[in-house]
């Protein structure tokens, strides 16, 4: 799955995903920006450890859950990207106990 983008006058925005810099356009949702950047997995499911990407892009399916600026379980499709935002994958099933 890959997307090409129509030309735009929108300002570009820089944020990070798992520490890597990502370019986006002002007005993108975090989910759109990551799909445009070709990210292949937002999270793994807590039960079976299966990879997931956004399905609905309108706040219904919750498959776009991400850690955004330190806060887990945020809907990437409902949050607009901002400069300097720190976004992380949610691989909960693999995280260790404290």
């Amino acid at each position: 799955m890959s997307f090409t983008r129509t030309p735009t006058a929108a300002r570009s925005v820089q944020f990070s995903f798992d520490g890597m810099p990502v370019q986006a356009r002002e007005g993108d949702s975090v989910a759109a920006a990551l799909l445009a950047a070709g990210i292949d997995r937002f999270r793994t499911t807590p039960k079976q450890g299966k990879p997931r990407l956004p399905y609905c892009m309108m706040g219904i399916c919750f498959d776009c859950l991400l850690e955004i600026d330190g806060e887990a379980n945020r809907q990437g499709c409902m949050v607009e990207v901002r400069d300097g935002m720190q976004v992380r994958r949610q691989d909960q099933s693999r995280e260790v106990r404290l």
């Binding site: 090409t4 983008r5 129509t6 920006a33 445009a36």
Partner: peptide, 8 residues
């Protein structure tokens, strides 16, 4: 609509 992204 929102991000001008065209699928492959």
């Amino acid at each position: 609509k929102s991000s001008g992204m065209i699928p492959g």
